[in-house]
């Protein structure tokens, strides 16, 4: 069953945002060039000042671009893996397999391989979530 497939990501980064980011990147490059220039003529303080401005602006714009790209990538519906637990009430054997269409809790299945006179039943259907949930110390 293909329920774990994810739908293709729909990419869409706003042109407006892209334009702003590109302008800021251009300004930061100018600032870095000026910083290099200032350093070459021996004005270390001005060079440092311009370099800091340039680096901060560049970092912020790249971060904004990365954030919006991540948002675009997240645009997909993730289907979790669902598992079915099958038990034999007589011998207590338990098997877990991937969910199949038509499974439901307390559905009777084929006879148990160990006890041919007892039918196995589905006792649980669940998904396991590996959550990266933030914990707050409060």
């Amino acid at each position: 069953m293909a329920q774990n497939q994810t739908s293709p990501a729909t990419k869409r980064i706003s042109t407006y945002l892209m334009m702003i980011v590109l302008i800021v990147i251009a300004l930061s490059i100018v600032s870095l060039i000026l910083a290099a220039n200032a350093y070459l003529i021996g004005d270390g303080l001005t060079a440092g000042f311009l370099a800091i401005i340039g680096l901060i602006a560049m970092t912020m714009s790249i971060f904004t671009l990365y954030q919006s790209r991540r948002q675009a990538v997240q645009m997909k519906i993730e289907m979790p893996k669902v598992m079915t637990t099958i038990e034999c009430k007589k011998c207590g054997s338990k098997t877990v397999r991937e969910y199949q269409r038509g499974d439901y809790v307390y559905k009777e299945l084929d006879a148990c391989p160990k006890c041919p006179d007892t039918k196995q039943i589905i006792t649980a259907i669940y998904k396991e979530v590996k959550e990266k949930e933030k914990t707050y110390n409060v």
């Binding site: 300004l27 100018v30 060039i33 000026l34 220039n37 003529i41 004005d43 001005t46």
Partner: peptide, 14 residues
Amino acid sequence: TNQLGGSSDWTTYL
């Protein structure tokens, strides 16, 4: 930044 010589125009614009 006028002291920067040739890049003074750029600095003014910035």
